[in-house]
Structure formats: C-alpha cells, structure tokens
Simulated assay, not measured.
Amino acid sequence: MWILITLFAAGCQSVRTAYQNTLARQTGFLHATMARSLYGMPLVTLYLILCWWLFGWVSVENKSVFIVAATLCAVAQIMATYFMLRVFQSGSFALGTLLAKTEAVLAALIGLPLLHYTLTFGSWLGIAFGVLGAIVMSVQWKNIKQAHKDISLLLGLASGLCFAITSVTASMASHALSGSIITRAGVTLWYVLALQSVILCSIQIYKSKDILAPFRQEFALSCKVGVLSSLGSIGWFTGFALVNPALVKTLGQIEILGTLYYSKMRFAEKMTKQQWVGGAMILISVILVVTSTIK
C-alpha cells in the first residue's frame, strides 16, 4: 500500500515543483513557498473531514510530542522549500530537485534514534546508491575542490537536510496520536499546513502592508501549486505514518523522471551524460529499496 501511495505523491510533487519554480520566478520566493500551504488548505480540510467520516477521529496520546514534532515539521518544510527555490535561481531546476534527494539517507540517519526503525542491508544499499546518484548528477567534478563554496550545492544539501527533518518529525507527530493511520496522517498534515499558512501569510502581509497580499499574485497558478502540493502531501504524510520515512523518500526519488522531463521540456535545460548516469543510479536505488521491503 505504501508503495502505491508514495508513487502517487512523487508524481504530484514532480508537477507541483515545476509549477512552483515558475511561480517563484514570477512572484518571488515568499509567495511561492506560501502558496503550497495556504492554497492547499481547502482540499486538505475536505480530505480530513472525509477521513473523519470514513475512519473515525483520533485522540492525542502525547500532546507535547505532537505539538513539538508537528511544529518543527512545519518550520523545517518551509526552510526546505525556500532553500530549494533558491537553488532553482542559482543553479537549475534539475539541480535543485536532485540535491534535495539527499534527504533519503539523512532521514534514515535521523530516524534511527528517534523512530527506532530498522533497515535491511538492501534498503541501506538502495538509500546509499540513490544519494550517490544525486551526487553524480549534480557535482561538477572539475571544480570538486571548490564544491564547498558552490552556493547551489550548499543550498541543495540544506534543503535535503530540512526535508529529512520534515519526514521524520511528521512520522513522530502521527505516532503521537491514536486512531486510524489515515486520519492520524491527515490531522498532522492539516496542523502543519495551518501553521505554515499563518507564518508565511503574516510575513507577506507585514512586508507588503496589504492584508490581501497572499491573494493578489498569480491566483490561478497559486491554486495549481496548492492543489498539487496538498495531494502530494496527503500521500507523503500517509506514507510516513505507515513505514520508515527513509524508505518512502527513497522510493519517492522516482520523481526524477518527472524532473528530467520538466527540466528539458518546460525549462529548456540540457541534460549531460553525467546527469543521465546519476539518474539511472537513482532508479536502481528505488528498485533496491522496493525489492528489499516486499515480502
């Protein structure tokens, strides 16, 4: 079940990221980051009501853990999205998305002490292979000695770290609730998006001195970003509640197919042989993870 849910989430995110890149170019980082939460709230609210009706409500087993984990998840996701959009401007659409894929191994390492999940050798091999593939795709080997000074590399790795924190804390928050896994994931997602909307809308209103500022720029495009983001997030958060987030994010790297398509067709970016080799490595990592977890 988690495999199908993750594939759905990855597909939605691939298209959403392309639209969000366009939105960032037209409206700036703040609005593009805010759109994914504010404009996704209506759909997520309807989804949560449907979960409540079909699967029942939840109870809070550990309120403090839920609040801390879900709040950290919201803030980390804001920072991760911001860093990734910055890479789009300093590097490329493909580069930004690929560097963020280091989140898989980071989620595995962060999740070990916090979630107490165990991974098979095949899963670790798949995670490591995926991260290596992302490195092969993104690093300019002739400038390897200066890699630490590459702002695109640093921002991309920061995005990956923040996305990893998002994955792990989302899982922690869901497990602090009791009830249906589906509803638990929905409640966690709704809280995260609501908090993000409040934070980002407040900043945008304060900077523009206009209370309607969040709704004045590229409304139709913002709606597309919000809807696709909410659909993808429903998939991600449900996956995080079902299995180890590291496995979810590694399988989610299948999104690379969409990234390559949009990079080439929508943004006219050229893909090198090195990047195609790295992409193949990422696909192999996905196969390794899936085959090692199917029993």
Score class of each variant (00 low, 15 high):
residue 119 L to Y: 15
residue 173 A to I: 04
residue 293 T to C: 08
residue 295 K to E: 06
residue 143 N to K: 13
residue 251 L to W: 04
residue 216 R to H: 14
residue 190 W to H: 14
residue 96 G to W: 07
residue 182 I to K: 00
residue 228 L to Y: 08
residue 241 A to M: 06
residue 71 T to P: 00
residue 136 V to C: 03
residue 225 V to Q: 02
residue 270 K to L: 13
residue 187 V to M: 13
residue 38 L to G: 06
residue 287 I to T: 13
residue 208 S to F: 03
residue 165 I to Q: 06
residue 51 C to W: 04
residue 109 L to I: 15
residue 18 A to R: 01
residue 174 S to P: 03
residue 219 F to S: 07
residue 161 L to M: 12
residue 122 G to L: 07
residue 113 P to K: 11
residue 122 G to D: 10
residue 121 F to N: 13
residue 203 I to H: 05
residue 222 S to W: 01
residue 83 F to E: 07
residue 220 A to M: 03
residue 18 A to I: 10
residue 111 G to R: 01
residue 94 A to T: 15
residue 106 L to K: 03
residue 91 G to D: 10
residue 52 W to G: 02
residue 119 L to A: 12
residue 263 S to T: 03
residue 111 G to H: 02
residue 147 A to E: 10
residue 243 V to W: 03
residue 217 Q to Y: 13
residue 183 T to G: 10
residue 163 F to H: 04
residue 47 Y to C: 11
residue 129 F to K: 00
residue 130 G to L: 04
residue 245 P to M: 04
residue 201 C to S: 15
residue 282 I to G: 13
residue 72 L to R: 00
residue 119 L to K: 05
residue 232 G to H: 09
residue 177 L to K: 12
residue 206 Y to C: 02
residue 173 A to K: 08
residue 138 S to I: 07
residue 137 M to G: 05
residue 276 W to P: 09
residue 189 L to R: 08
residue 208 S to Y: 04
residue 202 S to I: 11
residue 293 T to I: 00
residue 279 G to F: 03
residue 83 F to Y: 15
residue 47 Y to G: 09
residue 125 L to A: 15
residue 77 Q to Y: 09
residue 233 S to Y: 15
residue 295 K to M: 07
residue 151 I to S: 14
residue 282 I to K: 00
residue 156 G to I: 13
residue 80 A to M: 09
residue 58 V to M: 08
residue 211 I to N: 00
residue 134 A to W: 09
residue 292 S to W: 00
residue 135 I to V: 14
residue 198 V to G: 01
residue 66 F to K: 06
residue 235 G to L: 12
residue 35 A to I: 07
residue 175 H to M: 11
residue 138 S to Y: 06
residue 160 G to S: 00
residue 20 Q to R: 05
residue 218 E to K: 14
residue 37 S to T: 08
residue 53 W to F: 12
residue 276 W to L: 13
residue 287 I to H: 06
residue 207 K to F: 05
residue 233 S to M: 14
residue 59 S to H: 10
residue 26 Q to H: 11
residue 74 A to H: 04
residue 175 H to F: 08
residue 51 C to R: 00
residue 184 R to A: 12
residue 4 L to T: 12
residue 97 T to P: 02
residue 198 V to H: 01
residue 255 E to Q: 15
residue 82 Y to E: 04
residue 80 A to H: 10
residue 126 G to E: 06
residue 61 E to C: 05
residue 105 V to A: 13
residue 26 Q to Y: 06
residue 143 N to T: 08
residue 65 V to P: 01
residue 295 K to Y: 08
residue 105 V to M: 14
residue 157 L to S: 04
residue 209 K to Q: 15
residue 34 M to G: 10
residue 139 V to T: 13
